[in-house]
Design a protein around this nucleic acid. Structure first.
Length: 588
RNA sequence: CGGGGCGUAGCGCAGCCUGGUAGCGCAUCUGGUUUGGGACCAGAAAGUCGGAAGUUCGAAUCUUCUCGCCCCGACCA
């Protein structure tokens, strides 16, 4: 490709719409343009890098037995109704009607299509196990797209689906993906970690997210540097130390005018926040007799902790959760700021598991201006559900080794889910086993966001001048700069020659000053750069330089092909060694 | 969905408070001089000031509504 024929230009200034490094650089270097919030155009450079990432993904998934196919972006709503997700998912799903007034769905993912296909085609255990995958566009109408390609509404994702007779089979496919995902990330020179995660809307049992750690990420992970424990903060457990048990004392009402927050309460009574019981009201959609109903939920937690909405949703098995309005709270006979489960009826009470282990807590009296001292679980109130609903925070103790946990931000570039029989049950995917019995197919689903990978790679590999592409995913291998007429004459033939030898060259043949070309070379960030001009020729040939290094070497013109190949091979070898090293470190 | 910010030439911005001729830098086009880190000279072209309504003799500027984009939170891959 020649820069003179590129139909868009690089940008000198950061566009005002971009704040995150990868977004700025991808815009400035001419990789992407935004069409609408969370909807992007992939320009030729981005397309080339994307294809390379996709090819790496394909190779690794085919290594573990994956068969590529393509499933549609538009689905009939029927299959989504069957899986119930038509009803469970809200505004995130793109819905429309076709001309015959049929409900249609824009694919958010493809479990339903897989299940549809599988129940028609798979009859026998002899057809299992199987692994199918595709790379396809998805639409998720995210309420807040952000950070360029990190969080978008339309995106390309690789998703694979495993089909097995048994849990053991699923386990094997899951582990295969676990390893493959590390290989994929490492081949793109992207450092990732795997953390346990919430199954979310996928609805499964066990799940891992593959996270690229970066402050611009939107997920928070809790990590223990001592024992290696890691989990998404949404579900991270932690070791809860109960205060020493006291002699249980009688309940006592105390006047607390204007004291409506835990902080004020602790100050007012001169006690630590951990001696209080905090109440948070939420309205949850909970399934009762085959129907989802709004229920006011009172979450009770020790005053020094925060409720994790995700954990609360999980213990409630709720479809959704939202903060309660003051009116909804008053309706149940209590007062915001002075609420507690003591003496309250007709409210679903969920208690954090640390509460029953705590004694003589201060809680609201359910009337304006009063709190209760020495409230004790079991004696004074009981919960409908007890469980872990506390959000882990920086400095909390690791659930495995009790060392302090640290919070880190990260981008989820991939995930793997053990779906089990969730979809098979709903959509009737059964097979006949060896004994002639019908059994549900055991499924797994595994995704990787291709655009997110691209953005994360840029986020990881850049400096003040621009992107520094890893050789494996760079849109081209080499940026060729010609300076002056003589330089151009030689560069023209070098360009032809190198392409013939399998070197992907981006040739800056423009009639521009050298400064512009060097700036663009750094900005676009190809791993190799070659300059041919009077100065280099006087020194004995062409100048060859790595993007990541300052020093350059001069090579005679008739050795160009050989030297470039050598350098490219060296970069590729370095990377593959790194991949091999990291793979050998992996333990299940 | 809550809070904040921004929409003026392709890009980055000023002008708005205090209403009166729409401006700067870069990019673009022409001619010339240049050619190793975003060159120089001369000239040119380019904007329904996001949109609608209102106030006014007069609106980029004031008012109301609306659309879009960005950031924080909620939510999510």
């Amino acid at each position: 490709m020649q820069m003179s024929k590129l139909f868009i230009k690089t940008l000198r200034d950061d566009p005002s719409e971009a704040e995150v490094t990868s977004h700025k650089l991808l815009l400035r270097a001419g990789f992407i343009r935004q069409l609408a919030a969370g909807i992007f155009i992939n320009l030729p450079f981005a397309k080339r890098s994307t294809v390379k990432i996709e090819n790496i993904i394909k190779e690794e998934i085919e290594k573990i037995g994956g068969l590529e196919m393509t499933m549609p972006v538009i689905h009939p709503a029927d299959i989504w109704k069957e899986s119930k997700r038509w009803y469970q998912i809200g505004g995130e799903m793109g819905r429309f009607k076709d001309r015959n007034d049929h409900d249609m769905v824009l694919a958010m993912t493809h479990e339903e299509v897989v299940a549809y296909l599988v129940r028609k085609e798979i009859r026998s255990y002899k057809q299992l196990p199987s692994l199918i995958y595709h790379i396809q566009t998805k639409w998720r109408d995210d309420p807040r797209p952000r950070a360029g390609l990190i969080r978008v509404r339309e995106f390309v994702m690789k998703d694979s689906y495993s089909l097995d007779e048994t849990e053991e089979g699923l386990d094997k496919q899951y582990k295969n993906h676990y390893r493959a995902y590390f290989n994929i990330a490492h081949r793109c020179d992207l450092p990732v970690i795997a953390v346990k995660s919430d199954a979310g809307m996928m609805g499964g049992n066990i799940a891992h997210e593959f996270i690229y750690l970066t402050p611009i990420g939107e997920d928070t992970l809790m990590i223990c540097k001592k024992c290696g424990f890691s989990a998404n903060r949404q579900i991270a457990g932690f070791f809860k130390q109960a205060d020493e048990k006291e002699q249980v004392k009688p309940v006592e009402e105390v006047e607390t005018p204007g004291v409506t927050t835990i902080e004020d309460l602790a100050k007012f009574l001169n006690i630590p926040e951990s001696k209080t019981a905090k109440v948070v009201f939420k309205v949850a959609e909970i399934k009762e007799e085959e129907e989802y109903k709004d229920r006011l939920v009172m979450a009770v937690i020790r005053g020094d902790m925060e409720v994790s909405d995700t954990k609360l949703v999980n213990v409630l098995q709720a479809r959704s959760l939202r903060p309660a309005q003051d009116e909804e709270i008053v309706e149940k006979g209590t007062v915001p700021g002075y609420a507690s489960p003591v003496g309250l009826k007709d409210v679903m009470v969920v208690v954090d598991d640390l509460i029953p282990a705590s004694t003589n807590l201060v809680a609201g009296a359910n009337q304006e201006g009063y709190h209760l001292l020495n409230v004790n679980y079991d004696r004074d109130y009981k919960a409908d559900i007890t469980g872990d609903i506390a959000q882990a925070r920086d400095g909390d103790s690791c659930p495995q080794c009790q060392a302090p946990l640290q919070g880190f931000r990260g981008v989820e570039i991939g995930n793997i889910f053990k779906l089990g029989t969730r979809y098979s049950d709903y959509l009737g995917c059964n097979f006949l086993d060896k004994n002639g019995k019908w059994r549900p197919i055991v499924m797994g689903s595994y995704g990787i966001g291709v655009g997110r990978m691209l953005a994360s790679i840029v986020e990881e590999h850049n400096d003040k001048d621009g992107i520094c592409w890893p050789i494996s995913v760079a849109p081209f291998h080499l940026y060729l700069i010609s300076i002056g007429d003589k330089g151009k004459e030689i560069a023209d033939s070098v360009y032809e020659q190198l392409w013939k030898e399998g070197i992907e060259v981006l040739y800056d043949d423009r009639d521009d000053s050298p400064g512009i070309k060097f700036k663009d070379a750094d900005l676009i960030g190809l791993p190799l750069r070659m300059t041919i001009g009077d100065r280099s020729l006087q020194k004995g040939g062409a100048e060859l330089k790595l993007r990541r290094e300052k020093e350059s070497i001069i090579i005679p013109v008739d050795e160009i092909t050989e030297k470039v190949k050598e350098l490219k091979n060296r970069l590729e070898k370095e990377l593959s060694q790194k991949v091999a090293e990291k793979a050998s470190e992996l333990v299940d």
